[in-house]
């Protein structure tokens, strides 16, 4: 081995030693090249892909249906039932065109509710039956329960208590398979029917069950309804002290919710309890409070009802 070969061999050995001692330092330039030339565009690509991914959005038609539906709700809340009817019909038509099953059910039920407000009971029943008798579309148990509940209410409006009770039970049976959130309302309706049929113990039981469900779902309006129905049952059972306490409890919830009509109902209820106890003056005081509330809210039916009660008491 001559000197030149010896030097070359030494260089190789030195390089090997250096690479074992300082491996990164030796290859640093390659890593930098990789980092700048490949990793950077790769990161950019990953970033762009991440930004580009958009969440699942609703179709234009669905968004339009929702817009119209919400306008219908606003019209309903301001008492413009004719406009509300038209808007819900439009929303239903769009939902049908995209076969949005839940949207179809919701709009049919809202149409039934508006028809009921307009006193068009047959039209309301027709809308509900479209959900309950549908063979082509499979609506959820929740919607079927809501539809049955609405049907029960329509029958009760017509004084058909037994049929109404049947549909209330059907509404409950739909809820047994899934949690609906309507059980409280259904039990309240059953309590109301039992009260009308003078089945007071049953009314109390249904009211209590309704109260439990409504408390679970934190539905204050229906909680107050449950308590008021129980108060009515207690009044009918001549348990006046309990009845008064329940009415006051219901009134507190109604006041917190700002439901003027319900506050008037509660006051009339307390008045009735006093009347049953023979305390005419106390009763009149509560009836006058109810009248004042009805007058302030412009509730013509409420005013007429309370005035009628006051006149009867005075006679």
């Amino acid at each position: 081995m001559n000197n030149r070969e010896q030097r070359a061999e030494d260089r190789i050995q030195n390089t090997e030693v250096r690479s074992q001692k300082f491996p990164l330092k030796k290859c640093g330039s390659y890593y930098r090249l990789l980092s700048y030339c490949l990793l950077f565009p790769a990161y950019c690509l990953l970033f762009l892909t991440g930004c580009g991914s958009t969440p699942a959005t609703l179709s234009d038609m669905h968004v339009k249906a929702i817009d119209i539906h919400q306008s219908g709700e606003k019209a309903f809340k301001r008492g413009d039932y004719k406009t509300s009817l038209k808007l819900y019909s439009d929303a239903l038509r769009i939902n049908r065109s995209i076969e949005n099953i839940d949207g179809i059910a919701i709009n049919l039920m809202n149409l039934a509710t508006v028809h009921r407000k307009l006193g068009e009971r047959d039209n309301a029943l027709q809308c509900i039956d479209e959900i309950l008798n549908s063979s082509s579309l499979s609506f959820t148990q929740h919607r079927l329960s809501e539809a049955s509940y609405l049907k029960a209410i329509l029958y009760l409006d017509n004084g058909q208590m037994d049929t109404s009770l049947e549909w209330s039970d059907k509404a409950l049976s739909f809820c047994q398979q899934t949690k609906c959130g309507t059980e409280g309302r259904i039990y309240n309706l059953k309590a109301k029917i039992s009260l009308l049929k003078q089945e007071l113990d049953n009314a109390l039981q249904c009211g209590a069950k309704g109260l439990d469900f409504n408390k679970n779902f934190e539905d204050n309006q229906e909680i107050a309804n449950s308590i008021r129905l129980m108060a009515e049952a207690k009044t009918a059972k001549k348990e006046y002290l309990d009845a008064r306490k329940l009415y006051e409890e219901a009134m507190q919830i109604d006041k917190a919710s700002g439901l003027t009509n319900k506050i008037a109902f509660d006051l009339v209820g307390i008045g009735q309890v006093f009347l049953h106890e023979g305390k005419k003056e106390e009763a009149l005081r509560y009836f006058k409070r109810a009248l004042s509330i009805s007058e302030s809210s412009g509730n013509a039916k409420g005013i007429a009802d309370v005035k009628n009660i006051i006149e009867k008491v005075r006679k």
Binding site: P55, V63, G103, M109, N110, L150, F265
Partner: peptide, 17 residues
């Protein structure tokens, strides 16, 4: 997008009383 509530259709509440 997580702060904006998606619009939805809902049934009108029919009071039991």
């Amino acid at each position: 997008r997580s702060l904006i509530k998606q619009p939805e259709e809902k049934t009108l509440k029919v009071d039991s009383y």
